[in-house]
C-alpha cells in the first residue's frame, strides 16, 4: 500500500497466531480457504450430477416403472428427513453467525444441535434401508422383491440401484459431515476460533449446506414425484 494507513488493527493481524506465514493478512488467508472450498463443492456437484442424470435417463425410458417403484419408498421417512436436514442447515448457519460475532459457547451449542439432527437423519435412513433389505428391493443382481411377492414391471433392480447409489452417497456425505462437525466442536473447545479466525467453521457450514442442497433435489425426485 502506498498511502499511509491509519488502521489500528494492523499489528493485531500481523501477530495473529492463526495467520500462516505465506499469507499477508487474515482476510487473504480466509479468502483462499473459502475459494478452495467452493472449488471442492463444484466437484461434489459434478459428481452427484452423474447420478441425477442416471435417474433422469431411467425415468425417460421407463416412466411407469419409476412411478410404480417410487411408491415403495416411504414418503413419511423422506419427509421427516427433509425437515431434519433443513433444520440442521439452519442451526449450522446460526453457528457460523455466532462465531462471526465471537460467541464460541453458542457456536458449540449450535454444532451439537446440528450433529443431533444429522444423527436423527441417519437413524431414519437406517430404518428405511432395513425395510428395503427385508423386501429384497436391492440393486442389480441382489434384487429379489418379486420373490417376496412384489411385482414391479420393467427394470426395478436398476431403479433400486439408482436409489441406493444416490441416497447412499448422500448418506456417506452426512456421515463425513458429522465427523467434521465433531472435530470442529473439539477445536472450538480448545479455543481455536474467534471473530477473526472462523473460516474452518464457515467451510464446514458450506459443506453441510451442500449436503442439504442435494437432499432438496433428491427428496422430490425419489420420494414424491408422480
Amino acid at each position: 500500500m502506498s498511502t499511509a494507513h491509519s488502521h489500528a488493527p494492523v499489528h493485531d493481524d500481523e501477530h495473529n497466531p492463526h495467520l500462516a506465514h505465506h499469507f499477508d493478512t487474515m482476510g487473504q488467508q480466509n479468502a483462499s480457504a473459502k475459494l478452495g472450498m467452493w472449488l471442492f463443492l463444484a466437484t461434489e456437484i459434478l459428481m452427484f450430477s452423474g447420478l441425477f442424470l442416471a435417474y433422469f435417463v431411467l425415468r425417460m425410458f421407463y416412466p411407469e416403472m419409476v412411478l410404480e417403484a417410487h411408491e415403495y419408498l416411504s414418503k413419511t421417512a423422506g419427509g421427516i428427513n427433509t425437515a431434519v436436514l433443513l433444520t440442521s442447515s439452519y442451526t449450522m448457519a446460526l453457528g457460523v453467525r455466532s462465531i462471526q460475532l465471537g460467541d464460541v459457547k453458542k457456536l458449540r451449542l449450535y454444532l451439537v444441535l446440528t450433529i443431533l439432527c444429522g444423527c436423527i437423519f441417519m437413524v431414519v435412513k437406517y430404518f428405511e434401508y432395513s425395510a428395503k433389505f427385508e423386501h429384497g428391493m436391492l440393486p442389480g443382481k441382489f434384487y429379489s422383491a418379486h420373490l417376496h411377492g412384489y411385482e414391479i414391471e420393467g427394470l426395478p433392480h436398476i431403479f433400486f440401484g439408482v436409489y441406493f447409489m444416490m441416497t447412499g452417497l448422500h448418506g456417506i456425505h452426512v456421515a463425513i459431515g458429522l465427523a467434521i462437525m465433531l472435530w470442529m466442536f473439539v477445536r472450538a473447545g480448545r479455543g481455536e476460533f474467534d471473530k477473526t479466525n472462523y473460516v474452518a467453521i464457515e467451510n464446514t457450514g458450506l459443506y453441510w449446506h451442500l449436503v442439504d442442497l442435494i437432499w432438496i433435489f433428491l427428496f422430490p425426485l425419489l420420494y414424491l414425484v408422480k
Binding site: H5, H7, V10, D24
Partner: peptide
C-alpha cells in the same frame, strides 16, 4: 486490497 486489515464479512 485498499484496507486489508478491515473485516468485510
Amino acid at each position: 486490497v485498499e484496507h486489508p486489515h478491515e473485516s468485510h464479512e
